[in-house]
Design a protein around this nucleic acid. Structure first.
Length: 592
DNA sequence: AGCACGCCGACT
DNA sequence: GTCGGCGTGCTC
């Protein structure tokens, strides 16, 4: 018997071994096999009859049983194809950790799903979605997929569930995996690495915060958790719940076209969302008068205030009319570079000289300066010497000592994640244009999600203050009016007009080279291999800002994009190529 | 991804 | 005269 084994290598192909006498293995089982003079862990992806004395034998099995059912292995195979990436790293990213030391524990085979009646998944957006989800999941069996470990920890506590995510020790994750396989775990909670965990029949799978970009970070498995789970639910007949107050535009679109059942929503008690034109004051100070007052009010009421700083935008905006310099062909905001004095489109690489005046209104004050967390913190401390201030880093960790009785929190939109409704007295967006200006077609979607989260977090008695130059943007207007339909209608119109997802698919291809010239050459060869293929739109390569030589380009295409790319890209993905490592990221959430 | 094999500078 | 840099290529 011969076994095809996939390893966690950036190689498209698997390797074939002889199964030695006396060793019984099955597909989906992990094995140790000799590869390049050492034993490495791989997954058996197929068994076939045959014998070839020239092949090396498998060394041994890692566990006595498969960690993946055949159905989950097939799902991983599909995920690899759908993301135009090799199977080895794709499965490797979704397996339980290896047993490090100690006695082998009781493992259970993964149940094969009985092809059940696949109901379309449900989209839960209403204000009470999380409480209802707890009720729904409590009896089990259920899998909860959270965007990050903090959220996984919170939900595991809330549901008294076993954890599969990297926030707990490996032994505990392993135990949770095999408990799920044996049907002993009522509810398991995990992140992306748990997407293939064995589940008993008629389980419920919940994806938390479906809109969160953490469900599709760069790297394996290069597929959005929502897409993998939707297919999984169909294959095994489990019930899927996508939970988000502000789903991604793709998911809303799927619910419009019947692929998902959108549960009705009720109008929630909504706070006042004030927009403030930050045109004048924001150049010297991060707090306008309305925001200053809101912070003072919150402190008086004994509630903390949160100040949200969006990712620093390198776009160029006019301080007088608020216009953002955009690529006329793509309408995404130009990236501005002061050193090279150019505007450059991150999508089509079109380049223009930095204008001296606003092409719209002739204004002379063009600025790309934004407010980063440090600058805001310093300013707030100066303005409110009597209040305790803490800045939170990306994973919600406080930068500085005081966290407990903090009166002003400063951080990214992630700061709002997991705050119980009503805990914050006010949320202020230092300048929301950072999001709307960012050269990314998802800017509107992210702004809408952040505003909605802020409104839910402060509750009806709190206040949201939005400092912006774009108070008329549909994301802001729709959030103020608590009006999802308008937001998604406008956003879908814009995406349809310009050929963005969900109407067209994108793929970003990046080449990391030894030298800039080599990366550039490899990139242009790669782009040339794709040009002329029916249905593909290949954008010109551009250098990614940063110190390392990375060149990227974007390809647009139909639903079949990964299959159209597989053939022509394979020579660039095989081996390493002397001129650079080629990385393919399907459906990127951001591509620079 | 490792890890080896293969051709050019500073040491015993 | 060797030890060793990491550039390129292979791994069932």
């Amino acid at each position: 018997v011969l076994a095809d084994v996939a390893f966690d290598l950036r190689l498209g192909r698997s390797f074939t071994y002889r199964v030695p006498e006396g060793l019984t293995v099955v597909p989906g089982q992990r094995v140790l096999a000799p590869l390049a003079r050492r034993d490495r862990v791989g997954v058996i992806i197929a068994l076939r009859d045959g014998d070839d004395a020239s092949l090396k034998p498998l060394a041994r099995a890692v566990e006595p049983l498969a960690v993946l059912s055949r159905a989950m292995l097939e799902l991983a195979r599909w995920a690899a194809e759908e993301s135009a990436s090799p199977l080895g790293p794709t499965v490797a990213a979704m397996l339980p950790p290896l047993l490090r030391r100690g006695r082998p524990e009781a493992v259970a085979p993964p149940p094969e799903p009985r092809p059940g009646t696949a109901a379309p998944g449900e989209l839960w957006m209403d204000g009470d979605r999380e409480d209802r989800l707890v009720e729904r999941l409590e009896p089990g069996p259920a899998l909860v997929v959270a965007p990050d470990v903090e959220s996984a920890a919170r939900w595991a506590r809330r549901l008294d569930a076993a954890r599969l995510d990297s926030g707990v020790p490996g032994a505990e994750r392993r135990a949770a995996w095999f408990a799920a396989a044996a049907g002993r775990a009522r509810v398991v909670v995990g992140t992306r690495s748990s997407l293939l965990v064995p589940l008993p029949p008629a389980a419920t799978i919940a994806l938390l915060d479906e809109h969160d970009a953490a469900h599709k970070p760069p790297g394996a498995p290069r597929l959005h958790s929502r897409d993998l789970l939707q297919r999984r639910a169909v294959i095994e007949g489990s019930a899927l719940v996508l939970c988000s107050a502000t789903p991604s535009v793709e998911t809303w679109w799927r619910s419009e076209s019947g692929g998902l059942r959108r549960l009705p929503v009720t109008r929630q008690p909504w706070p006042e969302i004030v927009t403030v034109d930050g045109r004048v004051i924001l150049r010297t100070h991060p707090l306008t008068l309305p925001l200053t007052r809101a912070i003072e009010d919150a402190a008086r009421r004994g509630r903390p205030a949160a100040l949200i700083v969006m990712g620093e935008a390198s776009a160029l905006g006019c301080d007088e009319c608020g216009a953002v310099m955009r690529c006329p062909a793509c309408t995404v905001a130009f990236g501005a570079s002061r050193t090279t004095r150019t505007l450059r489109c991150r999508l089509c690489a079109r380049s223009e000289p930095l204008p001296a005046t606003c092409p719209g209104c002739g204004g002379h004050r063009l600025s790309s300066v934004g407010w980063g967390g440090e600058r805001v913190e310093a300013s707030v401390r100066r303005r409110f010497p009597g209040l305790s201030v803490a800045r939170l880093g990306p994973p919600g960790k406080a930068v500085g000592a005081e966290t407990a009785r903090t009166q002003v929190l400063i951080g990214s939109p992630a700061l709002l994640r997991g705050q119980a409704p009503g805990t914050l007295g006010c949320v202020g967006f230092i300048v929301l244009d950072g999001l709307l200006r960012v050269p990314d077609f998802r800017g509107g979607e992210r702004a809408f999600a952040a505003l909605w989260a802020a409104a839910e977090t402060v509750g009806p008695r709190g206040r949201v203050v939005v400092q912006t130059l774009h108070a008329e943007h549909h994301a802001i207007r729709a959030a103020v009016a608590q009006d999802r339909d308008t937001f998604y209608r406008e956003e879908l119109g814009f995406r349809r007009d310009l050929g963005y997802p969900p109407f067209r698919r994108l793929c970003s291809i990046a080449v990391r080279g030894r030298s800039d010239a080599q990366a550039r050459a490899q990139t242009s060869d790669c782009a040339a291999a794709l040009r002329g293929i029916q249905g593909l739109e290949v954008y010109p390569p551009s250098r990614r800002p940063g110190p390392r030589p990375v060149w990227t380009f974007v390809v647009k295409g139909p639903d079949s994009l990964p299959r159209l790319l597989a053939e022509p890209l394979s020579p660039f993905l095989e081996g390493r190529g002397s001129r650079g490592v080629v990385e393919v990221e399907m459906d990127p959430v951001s591509w620079w």
